[in-house]
Design a protein around this nucleic acid. Sequence first.
DNA 1: AATAAAAAAGAACGCTTGATTGTTTAACGA
DNA 2: TCGTTAAACAATCAAGCGTTCTTTTTTATT
Lengths: 228, 228
Amino acid sequence: MARTIGSNGARTAEAIRQAGVKLIYRHGYEAMSLRQLAAEVGLQSGSLYKYFDNKQTLLFDIVRDHMEDLLGKAEADLAGIEDPLARLRVFCAFHLRYHMTRLAHVFIANMEIRSLDEAHRAVVVGLRRRYEGLLEAILRQGAAQGVFEVREPKVATYAIISMLTGICMWYLPGGRLSQDEIVDTYTALVIGGVTGGAPLQPLAAPAELPEREKPARRPAQVTKAART
Amino acid sequence: MARTIGSNGARTAEAIRQAGVKLIYRHGYEAMSLRQLAAEVGLQSGSLYKYFDNKQTLLFDIVRDHMEDLLGKAEADLAGIEDPLARLRVFCAFHLRYHMTRLAHVFIANMEIRSLDEAHRAVVVGLRRRYEGLLEAILRQGAAQGVFEVREPKVATYAIISMLTGICMWYLPGGRLSQDEIVDTYTALVIGGVTGGAPLQPLAAPAELPEREKPARRPAQVTKAART
DNA sequence: AATAAAAAAGAACGCTTGATTGTTTAACGA
DNA sequence: TCGTTAAACAATCAAGCGTTCTTTTTTATT
């Protein structure tokens, strides 16, 4: 027994990809063994090497393809829209819907970056930077036009994306809330946050807060970003 | 050569704990081998078993202790404060400062829950639920008093915590911004989000958005939460 | 019908892993 | 000072890992 009947290369390749996403999502990249993956597809572990060079490139391919898809679709959705508020709404809606329909891919792309070796990680981080740049540009544009109140566009970008991406930590299709309701809820939080809530003027700590001594601000220096 | 001079059990136990946090933070739980850990402390791998039963309980101890510390300190900071807005400010400030000073512990607690076996995971998830409950109660209280505009307190809780926790994805001490500035920036986003931004009334999709067909809302049903 | 190419099996590899055991040595209180 | 306890070593185990190579069977092409 060697080649199984009805076998087809393209179909197997796709099955491996899907099974890989599923197992990495469920157990993590390090914890997933190639024997496990092969069994899921109905192969012997050695046969997998007809479809990828090694375990690492399997992960990289999954993550890269996902990031490029994410970036491309976001740019497409934003194309032609000028108003910053409208762009922000579109960005939120896109990001949320995309994440709700691709829980596994998104989760992997966010969690397994550390498992990529340096060269591969650099590529993925570059793509992520470009994606973050979309939101940051929206925030800066809105701030310039006076419709947003954003002090630190970079920090706000990280904050908003973290918030929106967090949906894949709890969302499961078929839950109590519809996707539309979820999008509305998150969007309200984001829009409110950047347009400034009602009692926002005195942002200094209120009376109840113990007064923390504000250290003299260090002179501007390059932000050491933890994200590599 | 056996017992090394100056050796002391308590000191070694603490060194193992710290090295464990460091290595799990850097490489991930699965990727960290006990030989690696032992070498970091200056031991042989077998000696580690004087200090924990197995690799799994080492992870569990680290995560549980961290979660209990987080929960306890949050409750302490909130004690005695009644006003919802003030409580929310305190919660944000506490959460951010705690996370900025314990990057590794927080990262592990969030990323390695999946590596815990079922019984251990249940304990940690329970602690996390209690922590989330603190914020959710604040949001409900504020909504009841009419000072917050929060439609879905549970969703808002997840969203806000995701946003705040996201700080450990980019923050490194010594960066361009002081901790106070970062706390202010994040807090403004949160407060604005829950108090309702200026142009919030017409939350239906604006004209620029392609009209998506709204599916009939499913009858209320138990929310299947992905977080186990 | 013959042949080449594709697909998978299956065995084997060198290593590393978490875990366990028995032994040796240092520390410390009586 | 001596005996007990604590601390660490050294060696070992079976299992599992990613990977490579050879062989066998199926499919596609002529």
